[in-house]
Amino acid sequence: MSIDESTAARVAKLARIRVEPEALPALAGEFNTILGFIEQLGEVDVDGIEPMTSVTPQRLKRRVDEVQDGNQQEKILSNAPDAREGFFAVPKVVE
């Protein structure tokens, strides 16, 4: 499996990371090195083996379905790059 520049560009797009076109060949090369290393997994017989979901056999804890906290608008917005009138502000999303 070899990754070409257009695949690298598609992955960057999916990851929402801007990659300049001139950086794509090097990026594709690095992907190929790492994926080449990962390819070894193909040697392992995994027939009938369940994929691990939890490393410790435990049932996730549940809590009572009730409000635990709230009314923290100021705290939640305190680190926002752009907050206005009690909301996060972002560029226009709907034309």
């Binding site: 999916l14 990026l27 992907f31 990962i38 997994l41 994929p51």
Partner: peptide, 23 residues
């Protein structure tokens, strides 16, 4: 980006699920 790739449609089984089986 590697993580995005191994989780993307068409590669999820071949990479991610296989790795979890090996785990």
């Amino acid at each position: 980006m590697i993580g995005t790739y191994v989780l993307s449609a068409g590669f999820y089984d071949a990479y991610y699920n296989r790795a979890r089986r090996v785990r």
